[in-house]
Structures are given as C-alpha cells and as structure tokens.
Amino acid sequence: MSSIPLTHILFVSTALFFIGMYGLFTRRNLITMLMSIELILNSVNINFVAFNKYLYPDKLNGVFFSLFIITIAAAEAAVAIAIIINLYRSHRSIDVEETQEMKY
C-alpha cells in the first residue's frame, strides 16, 4: 500500500481533473456537464487526501476538507439540477447551446 508513490496518485487526480475539464467544455448536455464538474471536484478530493496521507500522516485536515467538498458538491448538484429542470420547463431542452439568451 505504502509502496505506491505520491506521484502516481497525483497523476490519477490530474487525469481525472482534465477529463472533467474536457467534458465540461465539450458536452452539450447540462447533466453531463454537471457530472464533469463532479469529476473535477473528486480529483481535488483525491489531492487533499493524498497530500494529507503522504506529507502529514498524523493529521486529518485534508480529510476534513474533502468531507466538506463532498457535502458542498451534493448541495451544488441539488441546486444545479433544480436549475436544469426549470430550464427544461421553459426551453423543452437541456442543451447548453440552446440557451444563449443571457448576453448583451
């Protein structure tokens, strides 16, 4: 277990972050974009936990941070889905390209 070096874990989290980023930029479906954001948040969680484990094994700060992030992610998902449902009701679509009214 301890033989896995930190860099490997960081590599996983970086990969996860950019996958999420890519999804956020390319997907047109708002639900999928929300899922991408969850991926980004989870990559951050991994970072927190990994650094906590390797740099300060006697402390729990990083773990608590990730707990907070999970909570906030849940709340954010609730809000985002509420917005998406409302959007669907007014536009009959959840395609992000269809909703461009809010501009100059």
Binding site: L24, F25, M33, Q100, K103
Partner: peptide, 16 residues
C-alpha cells in the same frame, strides 16, 4: 461586448 456571448462554455474557457 461580443465577449458576453451567453454561451456558458465559452465563459468556462475564459475562466480556465
């Protein structure tokens, strides 16, 4: 003013 296009993903790219 064209920067404020209404396209959410464009904003995300600027931000990033």
């Amino acid at each position: 003013k064209a920067l404020q296009s209404g396209r959410v993903q464009a904003y995300a790219i600027y931000f990033f």
